[in-house]
Every structure is written in C-alpha cells, then in structure tokens.
Amino acid sequence: MAGFAISFLISFYVFFLNILMTSLGMAFTYGVTRILNLAQGTFFVLGGYLASVFAWQIGLAFGIAAAAAASLAFGPLFYLYVKALGRTELEQLFATYALLLIGEGLFKLVFGNGNYTTASLADGLGSVEVLGQQVPYSYLWGGAVAAALLALMYLLLARTRAGLYMRAVRDDAEMASALGINVREVGLSASALGILITAASGAASSMWQAFTLGLSGQILVYAFASLVVGGIGDLLGVVAASAVISAVRTAAVFLYPQLELVAIYLVVIAVLLTRPSGLFARHARLA
C-alpha cells in the first residue's frame, strides 16, 4: 500500500511539475499584456532545444541557464510583433497562430526531426530512495527551479515598483495609462519576463522531457487547462490548478487509463461553467 501511495505521489509530482512549468510564463504574460499567446508553447520548446544543445557543450546547469538567457531577446520582439500586427484579440490570435507555425518550421530547419533532451546528463545526477522507490534528483532540481521562478515572480510583483506597475496594468490598462504609467514599456518587460520564464521552464524540463516537432501544440493545451482552472493570469491559482489537474489526471491513469486526457478537460469544462474566472479568483472579472 505504501508502495502504491508513493508511486502515485511521484507520478502526481512529475506531472504537476510538467504542467506548472508550461503554464507559469503564460499566466504571467497574459496577466499583464492580455495577449493570449498560441505560440507560448513554442518558447517552451525553444528553451528545451537550446538547453539540450548547450548542455552537451558547457554542462547541464550552465546549459539550462544559457538557454534561458538566450531566449531573453525574444520577449520584446514578440511583444512588438503582436502589437504591430494585432490590435483586436482576433488579430492577435491570428498573429500568434502564424508564429506557432513559423516556429515549427524554424525548429525543423534548425534542429531537424530528432529528439532533444538532457535526460542522459540528468541521469548522472543520481536518484534518492524514498520508501523503496527511486526518485531522480533531476525532478527535485526541476521543482527547485519552479519554486525559484515563482518566488522571483512573487517578489517582483508584490515588492517592487515595476511589479506595482504591472499589477496596475493588469487590473486596468487604461486607468494605469491615465495615471502616467507607460503601458507599452510595462507590456514589453512583462512579455520579456513571461517568455524568459517559459523558456527557462522548458530548459529545466529538458531533464525529463524529450523535445521534438509538434510538441509546441501539445504543451499549449495543457497550459490552457491549468490557466483556465487557476484563473487566467493568477500565479498562485496556476500552482493550485496544476496540482488539481495533476491529481485528477494521475488518479485517472491509475484507475481507468482510457480517461487520461478526457479527465483533464472535464475538470476544465466544469470550472468554466461554474467559476469562469477560475477556482481561486478573489474577485470575478467582468467581461
């Protein structure tokens, strides 16, 4: 029984980490800029590809850090791209969808059809035995990265002036602008940060995830699920939502594997119908 419980917990933790990492950056970007980015998965995959390439040259930790740093430039570019092409939500969807396709094409061009991962390097980190089950250290390090990213985002949003501006823009961009906040600059820095977080998460995930073509789209729907359940743009909500979704999905896998995919989306639908602004929203947003 203890063996079952621990293997359930490990599976739960692994998927929780996966889904949290895919949705953190997206929650951040959407919260401030209101751009629903269909290409967010692309930046996650970019981080994973880059980390896998760099890690073989300069070692695992440096490789992951370098991948995150290399993707920093894409944030402002992304913001300018979307703002130049799309004023309405529909145009933004169109623009980011085009970006998703272009990203897939570029990945094929640059990285080819192979699987990219740092799993074999991460294996070298060893594992720790918990009640008779081996837990690889790579997952624990992944959890540490996620916790560090969350802490940084929290500190930024709650404790700094830039974070104050971001929260003001999130709540009401027009009012913030009237009060003298440069909404464009805040949007630029927020999307840069969101994409940095996404790429860093992707880079860290390369320790257990193999990156390949078509992953951008698969990642995206998981991220959507956790965003909806947590309340779009709510960081702590996203953490809790990832836990809820992972618990439901892991239970489905253990009890009735056919329902693996279905269970996740049934949760999403239930939340959308009962609490459209998310399970953990403190105040419901109108429209």
Partner: peptide
C-alpha cells in the same frame, strides 16, 4: 452561452479535446 471571449474559445477547445481523448483512448 455562459461564456464569452477567450473563455468561450477555451471552453470549445476543451470540449473538442474531450472528444479527441475519447477517440484516441477508446
């Protein structure tokens, strides 16, 4: 009917993914 904007998009996406899950897994 209960949802609008991106919530509608995400709801319809989730509905279709439920069907997708059923088609793939059963």
């Amino acid at each position: 009917i209960k949802t609008r904007g991106i919530y509608y998009s995400l709801l319809s996406l989730s509905l279709s993914m439920v069907l997708y899950g059923v088609l793939v897994k059963f």
